[in-house]
Structure formats: C-alpha cells, structure tokens
C-alpha cells in the first residue's frame, strides 16, 4: 500500500513537471507563430466549395500558391461559403478558413519544391478533392 501511494505521488509530480515544460514551450512557439511579423508578401486565400483561390498583391488570381524560398508569406484566409481549413502538411501548419472573419497564417518555406495543400475541415461532397499545390521557387 505504501508503495502505491509513493508511485501515485511521483506520477502526479512527474506529470506536472512534464506539463509545465510542454506548456511553457507551446506557449512560446504559439506566440511566435501568431505574432505580427514583417511579411515579404501578403497573399489572400479564398476557400470555396471545393477549390482554393490565391490572390496576389497585384490582383492576379491562381489555383496555385507560388512563393520564393526564404520569403515570409502572410496568408489572409477567408471563406465564401462554409468552414474550410488550409493545411500545409510538410510544415505542420494549419488554420481554419472561416466565413465572416479573416484568419492569418504565416509561412516561411525555405526549401524549393512542390508541397501539397489539403483542406482539413469537412466542407461537403468535394472535401477530399479540395487540394492545391504550394510551389516554392528558388
């Protein structure tokens, strides 16, 4: 019985210590991700059933997100119909694309290449087909 009590208390203390570490670093990373940053380029992202549209500063529109390697890109996300979510799986970043509000997501791709963009909020029949490419040029 003695032993169980000790293990129990050690578990609680160990878990608390672990959670303080995880919590503190999460808080730091989150603030870093969410803080206003000087962006090299701002691109508007429009989600609609079932396609992505990227609007560049000069007004051109495209179904492909083209940026230069090393640029800090500010994405302004809006939706024309239901909630979508833009997911850059290779960077582990995602943000919901919500009608009626503009969410912001910063990405800074470093390595040139093609990266898959997927929708990760169920948005109806064509949800699985709401894919696009991020093309990072050198």
């Amino acid at each position: 019985m003695e032993r169980a009590k000790i293990v129990e208390n050690l578990t609680i203390i160990g878990a608390l210590a672990l959670f303080i570490v995880i919590g503190w670093s999460s808080w730091a990373v989150l603030n870093d991700l969410e803080s206003e940053k000087p962006a090299d380029i701002t691109i508007k992202v429009i989600g609609r059933q079932f396609a992505w549209t990227f609007v560049y500063p000069d007004g051109t529109q495209s179904g492909e997100l083209r940026v230069k390697a090393g640029q800090t890109v500010r994405l302004e996300l809006t939706s024309e119909d239901v909630i979508h979510s833009i997911y850059f799986r290779d960077f582990g970043l995602k943000k919901d694309v919500v009608p009626g509000k503009t969410n912001v997501l910063y990405i800074t791709p470093l390595v040139p290449g093609q990266y898959l963009i997927q929708c990760t909020e169920f948005c109806g029949e064509g949800h699985y087909s709401m894919l696009a490419w991020l093309v990072v040029e050198s």
Binding site: I22, S25, S26, V29, L30, L33, S85, Y87, K94, K95
Partner: peptide, 16 residues
C-alpha cells in the same frame, strides 16, 4: 491525447 494539448503540435495533427 496529451499531444493535442500542445497547441503547435495540434496545428499539425488536428483533423488528421
């Protein structure tokens, strides 16, 4: 489940 609690980790695995 605890992985989800760390918000930046959740940004990767949420809805996957």
């Amino acid at each position: 489940g605890v992985f989800h609690a760390a918000i930046p980790v959740d940004w990767h695995i949420h809805d996957t």
